[in-house]
Design a binder for these strands. Sequence first.
DNA 1: AAGATAAAGGACCAAATCGGTCCCGTAAAT
DNA 2: ATTTACGGGACCGATTTGGTCCTTTATCTT
Lengths: 148, 148
Amino acid sequence: MLRISKLTDYGIVLLVHFARETKGATLNAREMALATELPLPVVSKMLKSLSSAALLASQRGSRGGYQLERNPAEISVAEIIEALEGPIALMDCVAGPGHCDQEGHCSLRTPWQRINRAVQTTLREVTLADLAMDAGPGSRPSPTFALA
Amino acid sequence: MLRISKLTDYGIVLLVHFARETKGATLNAREMALATELPLPVVSKMLKSLSSAALLASQRGSRGGYQLERNPAEISVAEIIEALEGPIALMDCVAGPGHCDQEGHCSLRTPWQRINRAVQTTLREVTLADLAMDAGPGSRPSPTFALA
DNA sequence: AAGATAAAGGACCAAATCGGTCCCGTAAAT
DNA sequence: ATTTACGGGACCGATTTGGTCCTTTATCTT
């Protein structure tokens, strides 16, 4: 359906929350669930994913939790999506060899790749910082982001 | 997974085949299945969809079949995707009201809409004609298309 | 050292979606 | 009439998604 999954969306919401906190703040799953009003098990699951994708750093044990691994301005939406649901490939055939039955006689691959790259570029130009800034009526995000 | 569905992909393959035929040619489901090496039931199904989406014109009865309703250069990839799988909405919340639980207190909607619009624009700028031209090494598609 | 806290890593399951087939009705040509 | 082909479905198995839960491991506090 050409959508990112709901879980990925949750993941981004979580990251945005981190980006809005005072830099380097450590928050645990329970706190995040509270803040985002998302069910704890889901939050927990996604934080784990984000952590193993190295977008969040984790600290175990009492007083443990998660914090952003990098600066919000250096984390693109593309990267988040890729971390949570694999390579961005609008159609099977650009996901790599062996995905498309028609691989031999298909002349659409090159154009597909171009389209895919264009979408990737769009997603790569929007950062977590862009998402985190409160989008009030007068706010102006980064230039590339504003072009749409 | 951020993919168009396989069925949609098939639909585009079919349209591209029409675009490559001599203008206005009428082809029936059997012929299309043969030409694309796709299973007949699938081809049949997709042709029906494309027809009810007014991308193809249909002719019933013996000697019937389908033909392109419009010029390939006037049919965008975005339009095809929208016809086959509904509005392009990368995330639920931009698909319309009532889709997102967080609707009230979600500050991500505006940025999402921008991102979504950017992707839409990309997809709207590539036409069936772009896809239909044989993408040999030296070929040069339309400017916007080439930028990726 | 003991206990509490919190992440890591899975297993697991229901529900939705996807990919694909098939059937029956209707329209048009011969 | 008969044949051809589209129209509109129903239908079904397989996969993916969304979400919960449990056990293990690591770390902090006392």
